[in-house]
């Protein structure tokens, strides 16, 4: 039963990653793309967690912590960058 659950979870997360990537490519404006990137990073944290419990390697959780940290810093940096640019239409 557990193997089936894990494949189902992996499939859902992969599909979620795919949809977020479509938005990343399509996104009409820069903030849309940043939101998509943020979602991708939190999906990646989820994938790492599921993989950790699947393989039983505890130290993979450290990777998840680092990914979450870097995603936050990137989001703040992008927000600053967008705001500096001022009003515009892209």
């Amino acid at each position: 039963m557990n193997g089936f659950v894990f494949s189902l979870v992996y499939a859902m997360l992969a599909l979620a990653l795919f949809m977020a990537t479509i938005r990343l490519c399509k996104g009409p404006s820069l903030p849309d793309r940043v939101v998509a990137l943020e979602l991708i990073s939190s999906i990646v944290v989820g994938v790492i967690g599921v993989h950790a419990i699947d393989t039983g390697v505890l130290s993979l959780l450290d990777v998840a912590i680092v990914v979450a940290l870097i995603a936050f810093l990137a989001a703040i940096g992008f927000a600053r960058f967008i705001e500096r640019g001022g009003p515009r239409s892209d």
Binding site: M12, L13, A16, L17, F18, M19, A20, L39, S42, I43
Partner: peptide, 9 residues
Amino acid sequence: MFLAALGIL
């Protein structure tokens, strides 16, 4: 997470 991605799309 799937719903989040569907929503963002």
